[in-house]
Write a protein that binds this DNA or RNA. Structure first.
Lengths: 333, 333
DNA sequence: AGCTTATCACGAAACGTTTAGCTCTCGCAT
DNA sequence: ATGCGAGAGCTAAACGTTTCGTGATAAGCT
């Protein structure tokens, strides 16, 4: 039903080749250019991108895989990534793994069938095997925020370990000795941030009771449950470092429900400067990730790789997190 | 590089038609079936969906337009919609309008160029003109959550006006007389909820000072600013009805920063039962939308329409919101 | 004037599928 | 035996583009 390039041929008397060339930015005689422009406008012609994709073998579509689209962290990342992709003429096909690694496997195959030109992925866990089919197919990949073990892909992350160290050192400087951590070892970010915590504690010669280290998962519910456990200990910590945005939520929920209050009884240090840290009272101390940069950089790397015919070595970009001060830390004599 | 159906032909000696028929569920002789199965597995053959789309004129891809992908409300909706679409074999091409109606216009054209089989849209404002190109092209459309003025499309919403009435009546029953509202008139939901507020106030013979009615936009920042203004009035309200999830956030932020506290000095009633209402202390009273149902129903309507060759009359589905009690309302003598 | 070069247009093949319509074979009922 | 229909396979065209190689025209040089 919609007009095709053949209709333009009828209308102008020119050949398909000439019309196609002009529409793709080639040079034609001024009078032909006018004819084509007129016909395109009159017939509301728009190139069929499916047909184009078949012959050029490029769909101008990028697959984006996230571990959970309902998390505001991912939503914010997708917002930046989507806007930038669009600016460069690419569409964004989103696959939500919903925290399920099976689904993640299936998503890769799905995107390959859709013939995406490249894949941006914020993975569910540290195991990157699910990417194998894409590697085999030679589809460019960029991994964002959470690196995967032993990958050969481009990767954009932040200095997780150092950021965690800075956070924990801040707590220590405020006089805290009994500091707990809530994170996850299954994701890259959680494991790196845990290392930072351990390092800071060790450097300062502080003891780490086993029950102060919670390494389950980076979810709201795990944060909630862990915090309840911590507060119920015979000797609860005086400060807690939360290694991820969703954990922030769960922890704050648990504190609000308890008899403890922040910062009088318990000091908190979180991650990611999104809505929560600013909305709550007291304002939460956090390490802020440069999320926009993360998104922009990942798009840049991917399009670069798609554009270049030569194979390029994998690149590792590491951005820096910065501290945002709040009122959630009590200074201990 | 990947295997094509022609490679299967070489491997089996069968014709393209036979192979295609079998792959699409047709019947072939057992020995041929075996041959094809073997070749498909050995060559890792997967049909090229681009080529298929060209001839069938169906891409098995749905365009989903949201007014802001970074909002957790939309993220949650997208999660449900995406999962259900996927279950039915469809991909989800997401376009974020980022609150910009220009962008929204451009998004429709973009999706049409991508030849999506249908469009699900959570619109930015009440004006639905941006959908015209899709209507002209005969692409099925379903509008979710926020209806648009005078549309002929399928539409899934909730009983906004009645829900707002219930909320305001709850405040009135608790003894409140000075009740303010924060919403927006530009969106369908905001304007309907405003009507509900006005109706409840009128039914109970309550006065509505002009400065108690804030109808700017449904964003965090507007909620924040409006609440500051309300609290600064010579005669501030004793209760506030917040007509949307983002507004909740802004309002709570403003209250936390002020000398007022909830519910002692100010009672609050919000919308949408997502993270915030549960996390905050005191727990927030809200009207809860059946978000999963909203998403599922919209997918169902769309696929039904895509599947049917006959034209169908537009359908209007209205779901019901329910009240979730909290501790954010003070009972006045 | 004759030769070269640059510019533009064109015809035809190709991309990887689906599908309409035809042919062939086989078995069964008459 | 003959006729018939069902089932399965095949050929070829079609979907709407891009692109390769060639041809034509005009302009620029000696």
């Amino acid at each position: 039903m919609p007009a095709t390039i053949k209709d333009i041929r009828e209308a102008t008397g020119l050949s398909l080749a000439t019309i196609s060339k002009y529409l793709n930015g080639g040079n034609v005689l001024p009078k032909n250019r006018e004819k084509i422009d007129e016909a395109v406008k009159r017939l509301h012609y728009r190139p069929n991108e499916i047909a184009r994709g078949l012959v050029t073998n490029r769909t101008k579509t990028i697959g984006v895989m996230v571990y959970n689209i309902a998390s505001i962290f991912n939503g914010t990342m997708l917002s930046t990534i989507g806007k930038e992709l669009r600016r460069q003429g690419y569409a964004m096909l989103i696959c939500d793994s919903a925290g399920d690694t099976e689904m993640e496997h299936s998503n890769v195959q799905f995107l390959l069938n859709k013939k995406v030109d490249g894949i941006i992925v914020i993975p569910t866990e540290r195991n990157g095997d699910f990417l194998q089919p894409a590697r085999d197919a030679g589809v460019p990949i960029v991994i964002v925020d959470r690196a995967v073990d032993g990958s050969e892909e481009d990767c954009v992350t932040i200095n997780n370990k150092e950021a965690a160290e800075e956070a924990v050192n801040t707590l220590i400087c405020a006089g805290h000795r009994k500091i707990a951590v809530i994170c996850s070892e299954r994701e890259y970010t959680g494991s790196r941030r845990l290392l930072g915590y351990l390092e800071a504690m060790k450097q300062n010669g502080l003891e780490i009771p086993e029950e102060y280290v919670k390494t389950g998962s980076q979810t709201v519910s795990y944060g909630y449950q862990s915090m309840r456990e911590l507060l119920a200990l015979p000797e609860p910590p005086t400060a807690v470092f939360m290694a991820n945005y969703d954990i922030n939520f769960g922890v704050v929920m648990a504190v609000n429900e308890s008899d403890f209050s922040c910062p009088e009884d318990i000091s908190l240090f979180g991650f990611d400067d999104l809505l929560l840290p600013r909305i709550m009272s007291p304002k939460l101390y956090v390490m802020k990730q440069p999320m926009e940069e993360l998104g922009l950089k990942s798009v840049e790397l991917l399009l670069e790789r798609i554009g270049s015919k030569e194979p390029m070595p994998p690149r590792q970009i590491v951005l820096k997190a910065t501290m945002m001060k709040g009122d959630s830390i009590r200074t201990i004599g």
